[in-house]
Simulated scan of single mutants.
Amino acid sequence: MRLHHLRDRDGGEIDFIAEAADGRVVALEVKAAQAVSPRDAHRLKWLRNKIGSDFACGAVLHTGERSFRLDDDIYALPISALWLTP
């Protein structure tokens, strides 16, 4: 697995892009906010449209407590989900 950060010429960025050996990608945005909206996922949607079926899923990590879907295969997750087990 390879880990990347993306910043384009226009200043848009994606915080973390994890690329598996088979080319599939999981992308993460990190927001220091308790509330997020589909607007916070716009760069993840852009990446999904750019790479097509290689996009496995994306997530916007936030400081709130709720998990929910922002778009097809893009989710809002509490950052605590990184270290909590179900």
Rank of each mutant, 00 (worst) to 15 (best):
R2A: 14
W46H: 08
S53G: 07
D71R: 01
L44P: 05
L77K: 03
D15L: 02
P78A: 06
H4K: 08
K45F: 00
L28H: 05
E19F: 03
D73I: 05
A56R: 14
S37K: 14
A76R: 01
H4M: 12
E19D: 03
I79T: 12
H4V: 06
P86A: 08
H5D: 02
E65Q: 14
D8Y: 04
L47M: 06
G12L: 11
E29P: 01
A18R: 12
G12M: 12
V36G: 01
D72E: 14
K45V: 12
I17C: 04
A27Y: 00
C57Q: 09
H42D: 09
G23A: 06
I14S: 05
I17N: 07
A59T: 06
Y75A: 07
F55L: 09
W83G: 03
T63H: 08
G23K: 04
L3F: 10
T85H: 12
T85N: 13
L82G: 05
P38A: 06
A41H: 08
D72K: 12
D71W: 11
A18W: 09
W83I: 10
A59I: 03
A18E: 09
W83P: 00
Q34H: 15
K50E: 14
G23F: 04
D8H: 00
C57T: 11
K50M: 14
W83A: 04
A56N: 05
Y75T: 01
N49F: 02
S37L: 06
R69D: 07
R24S: 15
I74C: 06
S80C: 13
G52R: 04
G12Y: 13
F16C: 09
W46Y: 09
G58W: 01
A41N: 06
R24D: 09
N49Y: 04
K45A: 11
S53T: 15
G52C: 07
A32V: 08
D15G: 04
A81K: 13
R48K: 15
L61M: 13
A33F: 02
W83S: 05
A32F: 11
D72A: 11
S67N: 05
A35S: 12
R2L: 12
V26T: 12
I14D: 03
A20H: 10
G11Q: 06
E65A: 13
A32Q: 09
F68E: 08
T63D: 10
I79D: 04
D40T: 04
E29F: 02
E13T: 02
H62P: 04
I74H: 04
I74A: 04
D15F: 04
C57A: 13
G52E: 08
Q34G: 15
A56W: 14
V36T: 02
V26L: 14
L6Y: 13
G12W: 13
